[in-house]
Amino acid sequence: QTTLRLSHWLPATHPMHDSIVAWGKSIEEASGGELTMEIYPAQQLGAAPDHYDMARDGIVDIGYVNPGYTAGRFPIYELTGVPFQANDGPKAGKAIHEFYKNGGYAEKEMGDVYFCLVNPHNPGRFHANAPIKVPADVKGKSVRPAHATMARYINSLGGTSVQVPAPEARDAISKGTADAVTFPYEAMKSFKMADVVKFHNDLPLYLSSQVMLINQNSYDGLSDTLKTVIDDHCTPEWSEKISEGWSTYDNEVRQEILNDSSHEVYEPTAEEVTLWRESVGPVMDAWKADAEKAGFDPDTVLADYEKALEANGVKY
């Protein structure tokens, strides 16, 4: 009889919490009740940016980590946050899993933990209190970015990144600290932002991909049967599956906003999309420089990532 403590930082009301619970249930059942999950939501056991260290150090057995919260720490993984790579959430989860884990990068960058799952949300977009139709519209604006790579993107467009925790993003907009945010649609509901941002650029932009990591000792201490149960739940297929609930919810919220006449959902023209895609150049260059500094060949890494995205039909 083994109990595994799993910690994440989303509120228990978030759709992702349900997906994590369901995943845990599946593990319990597959183990014939030998493995049980104790799930701690809402940062009860530690702050969101500390979750990697918590999983590595055994403070929890399983940690749900956003590598984007700690800029510079996982240079390869930061590629998954560069805009215009993947155009879907769940399938990108499978692709990133194949690229990062099966391609051996996880071993190099997160080698001190057992790498289990990838969980991206649906592509995030610009949501603002005034129109942002083209990249030039970001200039002079204060934007709350989703993660470090998006912060770099905002800065490269001549905007200013405003760092506030996600739950305070609404406040930052209503107080004028920020003019815009980058989020998936779902945040309009879960962070109650729908009444302060009325403009939505519908162009799918970037991913923010969480990972599920298991403490190495906790994993090594399991019997071979239980190890197999865990292995079976840490597959590219599970990365896709665990991401579906969040994605479905995101699509529902997008539809609600489309139906709500008080919101403007802007569909960029083909020329505008080209402008947006070209605007990512500096961010991609910066990422390449980081990857090179970390001892990787950026072009190989990028090619590997693109191959995985293509294989899953989600290459932008």
């Binding site: 403590r5 530690g46 702050a47 940016p49 500390d50 260290d53 055994g58 403070i59 506030v164 925790p165």
Partner: peptide, 23 residues
């Protein structure tokens, strides 16, 4: 409750997080 090594490791993360918390 959990183990001494993880307990001591709490000190490596949590206090620093508190003193660097912008909130």
């Amino acid at each position: 409750t959990v183990g001494w090594s993880p307990a001591l490791n709490l000190l490596a993360t949590s206090p620093l997080r508190t003193v660097t918390d912008f909130n």
